[in-house]
Design a protein around this nucleic acid. Sequence first.
DNA 1: GTTGAAACTGTAACGCA
DNA 2: TGCGTTACAGTTTCAAC
Lengths: 154, 154
Amino acid sequence: MKAPIDQIDRTLLRLLQQDGTLSLAELADKVNLTTTPCWKRLKRLEENGILRQRVALLDPIQLGLSFTAFVQIKTSNHSKEWYKSLVEAVSDFPEVMEFYRMAGEYDYMMKVQVADMAAFDQFYKKMVNSIEGLTNVTSTFAMEPLKYTTALPL
Amino acid sequence: MKAPIDQIDRTLLRLLQQDGTLSLAELADKVNLTTTPCWKRLKRLEENGILRQRVALLDPIQLGLSFTAFVQIKTSNHSKEWYKSLVEAVSDFPEVMEFYRMAGEYDYMMKVQVADMAAFDQFYKKMVNSIEGLTNVTSTFAMEPLKYTTALPL
DNA sequence: GTTGAAACTGTAACGCA
DNA sequence: TGCGTTACAGTTTCAAC
């Protein structure tokens, strides 16, 4: 069940997180296997959830969603119930692309992707109004994206 | 050359950024087209760079890379040359998954993905030593990832 | 790890509105 | 110009070796 990941698996993962269109034959070739054993490895990686999903990445600029904001939150309520409702509420916003519970001064941080400042303002009001118990909310804005990758450093 | 994106295109993009394994026939079915026109739309979206790439998303936990840090940077050097060398140097670190020039107190922010605090410390030293002109570097750490998606809110 | 065969997919030429 | 029909080549999937 819990088969360890060897070098070949890692290479396959590295290749696929860079280019998900690689065919089985191409992948097999790059790791010096034939298609079947390569295919079995991929199946296993999918079953184990190491290969979580395959997705298309889109261009935020051409789609008019190039405004990135980071919202940091402080709260005085640290109960489990409040936490659960917060996570649910925030996760339901499609504009929130990342959300973390943080160490340090702020309790939570989220990355928000929207069209422009006006759209962010709308989002902000919507969010703050729908969540009780926030003692401090502060936003910072990205002026220019310099790097974005989904590839883990394997 | 610059064909506008209609509702069908948007639906295709929305579907593919959620699940990149959908076949042409499935996609065509969901937007009430046959495969050929659907295929032509996808080709056009790829050519225009709206559909930028297809990738596999991996599980950071199983790969032992579940430590997320945000590093914020201030600089006194705002020359173009320094900026260029900074962007290049930082982008070359595979641990840096996101990097932004920011408005507000800090000039730059990056998201760093590594194994653990020890690995982060190593990365931190490596980075700070390889970049001149940083007047202030501060790091905050994620204790728990609550949401992560690559899907733009279309 | 290999072979090979069946099912499915992507690709493109061709007509039709 | 955009869509549908059809056919062919390439790919994935998987059983048997």
